[in-house]
Simulated assay, not measured.
Amino acid sequence: MHQPPHGPAGPPGQWPAGAPGGGHAAAPARKRRGVPVWAMLLVVAVVAMASAGVGGAVSASLVGNEPPEPQGSNALNNEVPSDVPSRAPDTIAGVAQRVSPSVVSIRSASPQTGGNGSGFVIEGDYVVTNNHVVDAVERTGIEVVYSDGHVSKAEVVGAAASSDLAVLRLADPLDVEPLEFGDSDEVTVGDTVIAIGAPLGLEGTVTSGIVSALNRPVTVGESGQEAYISAIQTDAAINPGNSGGPLVNEQGMVIGVNSAIATMGSLSGEQTGSIGLGFAIPSNQASRVVEQLIETGEAPHAVIGAVIDLQYREQGALILEERENGGDTIVRGGPADQAGLRPGDVIVEFDGTPVRDGNQLVTLIHTKAPGDRVEIRYERNGEEHTTVMVLGSSND
Rank of each mutant, 00 (worst) to 15 (best):
M1V: 12
P5N: 13
P5R: 05
G10V: 05
A19G: 12
H24C: 14
A29M: 09
R30G: 01
K31L: 14
V47R: 00
A48N: 15
M49Y: 10
A50D: 13
A50H: 07
G53R: 12
V54Y: 05
G56Q: 07
N65V: 08
E66Q: 14
G72A: 11
A75R: 03
N77T: 15
N77R: 14
S82P: 01
D83Y: 10
P85M: 13
A93P: 00
V99L: 06
P101S: 02
P101D: 03
V104Q: 03
S110I: 07
P111N: 05
Q112P: 04
G114Y: 05
G115E: 04
I122S: 00
E123Q: 11
D125Q: 06
T129K: 07
T129G: 10
N130Q: 10
D135V: 11
T140P: 13
T140I: 14
I142D: 10
E143T: 12
V145Y: 09
Y146Q: 02
D148E: 08
H150F: 03
H150E: 01
H150T: 02
A154S: 03
A159W: 01
A161V: 15
A161Q: 15
A161M: 15
A161Y: 15
S163I: 09
D164F: 13
L165K: 01
A166P: 03
L168V: 06
L168W: 04
R169F: 09
D172W: 08
L174N: 09
V176N: 02
L179F: 14
E180H: 05
D183M: 15
S184H: 03
D185T: 07
V189I: 15
T192F: 12
T192A: 12
V193A: 04
G197W: 02
A198V: 08
P199G: 06
L200C: 13
L202F: 08
L202V: 06
V206T: 09
V206R: 05
G209Y: 01
S212R: 00
L214P: 01
N215P: 09
P217S: 07
G221L: 03
S223D: 06
S223A: 10
E226T: 11
I229N: 05
N239G: 10
N239Q: 13
P240M: 14
N242C: 05
V248N: 02
Q251A: 14
G256P: 04
I261S: 04
L267D: 11
T272F: 12
G273T: 06
I281T: 06
I281Y: 03
N284Q: 11
E291G: 08
A299Y: 01
I304N: 00
A306P: 15
I308C: 02
L310M: 11
L310V: 08
Q315H: 14
A317F: 05
E322N: 05
N325W: 06
I330K: 03
V331N: 00
G340T: 02
G344K: 08
I347R: 00
F350T: 05
D351M: 03
P354S: 13
G358F: 04
V362R: 11
T363Q: 01
T363L: 00
T363N: 02
I365A: 13
T367P: 10
G371K: 08
R373E: 15
R380N: 02
R380I: 01
G382M: 09
E384S: 12
E384Y: 11
S393C: 04
